[in-house]
């Protein structure tokens, strides 16, 4: 039954989501062609649009999946969805898998957009003529893996949080507020996440570090220590860029907890209006 649900949800979302990816694909091709043609201003223009649409497409994918989840489960369509002989966890799982599939595709498009766009901008920016090679080096040294993971897990977290907030808005004490309670729940959740992830990112000595000429490597240092080190004129450390990665592991917690809570609410607390 889960497979059949996924089939129907994919068919449902496939009507609209690919349109946003076609727009991104258009700007990727336009940017590459204009780079090869050596056109100055159009390259910058296409590259900026590419960075913008690549970023926006991911939000569009998440937003559209959440709207369809809301309509399919809690809207009028819910009268059919919630009376199908399938468990609530399967309905939820089908929407999560659908979201994961589209987010995975969106991540590929977003990462390609980022590198093609940034490469084009640096190549045609007179002040940073040498940076194109730098980007190529960053890519070859594995930064793209961190970026793919970051975009994918970050987007998936937002999707799961929004499914949770949409669901909580239909539970009895919050139902009166309607959509407002979903927004409030998201703000609260975002605030809690921020309070936890900021210290994890900056203060936990778990980072990846980019050192020019060496590439990316794991570092047992916090972002704050690395920044302090950079600003110290007496430091002997080479120039480097450091990204704290401890928050990545925290993002796995809501990815497990929120689905469990959402399914529980769907099973026990939700009444269709």
């Amino acid at each position: 039954m889960l497979g059949k649900l996924i089939k129907h949800q994919l068919r449902d979302t496939a009507r609209i989501i690919p349109l946003s990816l076609i727009v991104v694909a258009f700007f990727i091709i336009a940017t590459i062609i204009s780079v090869q043609a050596g056109a100055g201003v159009p390259v910058i223009l296409f590259a900026v649009f590419l960075l913008f649409t690549g970023f926006l497409a991911m939000y569009f994918i998440i937003g559209y999946c959440v709207i369809r989840f809301y309509k399919n489960v809690y809207g009028a369509e819910g009268y059919l969805t919630m009376t199908l002989p399938v468990a609530e966890k399967q309905i939820y799982a089908s929407w999560t898998v659908t979201g994961i599939i589209w987010i995975a595709i969106g991540t590929v498009f977003a990462v390609i957009s980022y590198f093609v766009g940034m490469d084009a901008i640096f190549m045609f920016s007179p002040d940073d003529a040498g940076n194109s090679e730098e980007i190529a080096m960053i890519m070859s040294s594995g930064f793209y893996i961190i970026m793919i993971l970051g975009v994918f897990i970050g987007s998936l977290s937002i999707l799961i949080e929004l499914y949770f907030c949409t669901t909580i808005a239909h539970v009895k004490p919050f139902r009166k507020l309607g959509l407002g309670s979903a927004v409030l729940a998201y703000i609260a959740l975002y605030g809690i996440q921020l309070l936890i992830t900021m210290p994890l990112t900056f203060f936990v000595p778990l980072s990846v570090q980019y050192i020019p000429g060496t590439g990316w490597q794991y570092a047992n240092i916090s972002m704050v220590s690395a920044m302090t080190d950079l600003m110290n004129p007496n430091s002997f450390s080479p120039e480097h860029a450091t990204i704290g990665i401890a928050a990545f592991f925290w993002y796995l917690v809501p990815l497990i907890v929120l689905p469990v809570l959402t399914v529980r609410m769907m099973r026990e607390k939700i009444n269709l209006k």
Partner: peptide, 19 residues
Amino acid sequence: VETKAVISYLPEKTYLKDW
């Protein structure tokens, strides 16, 4: 789930997808 498999339910609302 078991009872939903044997119940045929017609709600007041129209529940089919627009498209």
